[in-house]
Design a binder for these strands. Sequence first.
DNA 1: TTCGCTCTAGAGCGGCTACTCTAGCAAAAT
DNA 2: ATTTTGCTAGAGTAGCCGCTCTAGAGCGAA
Lengths: 195, 195
Amino acid sequence: MGRIVDERRHAERREAILHEAYRQFAVAGYDRTSTASICRGAGISSGTFFHYFPAKLDVLVGILSAGLQQTRQALSRIETHSIGLPAVLAYAGGVQAEMSDPHFGGFVHAVAGVELLPEVATVLEDEASLIRAFLVRHLSDASARSEIRGDASPVHLAMWTQWLLDGAAQHATGTTSPSAEDDVVAAVRALLSPP
Amino acid sequence: MGRIVDERRHAERREAILHEAYRQFAVAGYDRTSTASICRGAGISSGTFFHYFPAKLDVLVGILSAGLQQTRQALSRIETHSIGLPAVLAYAGGVQAEMSDPHFGGFVHAVAGVELLPEVATVLEDEASLIRAFLVRHLSDASARSEIRGDASPVHLAMWTQWLLDGAAQHATGTTSPSAEDDVVAAVRALLSPP
DNA sequence: TTCGCTCTAGAGCGGCTACTCTAGCAAAAT
DNA sequence: ATTTTGCTAGAGTAGCCGCTCTAGAGCGAA
């Protein structure tokens, strides 16, 4: 009996669907993107689409889960060579780098529109709390060694940093102007720098 | 000939539809809210709904236009008694106050999901540039009198402030904890305070 | 009253959507 | 060679959606 025919091909197809869906969600939003349109863009039939994903929502969840895993890796990679303020700024730099993707801003908006669906909310909360823990950990460290302002608690500063980064992500346009390359990092530094 | 039968009643009905739509958009998002559901919630028929608004999208635009006008009034009211940093912080306080509305955060998400529809984008850009101009004006003033940090241009600081406020708005939950009352103001103050 | 108009209700409709079903093909296992 | 199974295509379907249409009630003007 023919079990898993070609694992490589399977993974590639799956990823192709995810990628095309990402693009279209970013351009038109989740609800306004039809499964038929994703199929057209990916050059497959609806039969194939629903063979790889049981429902449209699972495609979005798949994209977000991949993003979560990527974030996890990025944070642990940062922690192998940085702690305290440099670690926080390194993460901010990573967000800034993501923003140069021309579809990033659109996708952020698309996700915001369906953030209250439980399956979406779960993944996003996981990612948010992961980042939050990272920030609190390193801001506490930074505070202890007086790298940052001491007139606000690390928990507050972590929250404010997340606000700033989320707001910046929402405004991402994908235009990589040379001076804007470190705007986000500069903003975070300004927010955290001691008075 | 019977022209406008009852202007009061007309305005009240219209506002009732807007209010119910605002509530439902905040809870379920724009695309996932049906006109039938709005009608049910407002206690009217679809005939009435489409008598007051030519299309569903016009309800959203109506809500956003009302918000734009409200923002305009708020900003000019602030400018009658404040300039410079106090004016900026007064605006931040206004945003913080808005966030106590239990539906505010949900509505922000709902709008983000359809921000790329041209009619929506127009209103939002109008509001964003209005706020931007206000911030640049008063941050320039504040910078001149050394109320704020001088290591970043007023234009940059205005952008960062908008990022911060937008990010905060996105995280609004409607819970009015006493200590969170001035968190947004504190964050803006931290961002702008001289190093 | 009798027009003329606004406002309201609600049945109805065309169109689109997510998803299903069936049939066939390719290839691995027997 | 035959069977089994993964994979793919694409027609088909039930249901929902935004919106229209019609009929009439309410009200002001002549």
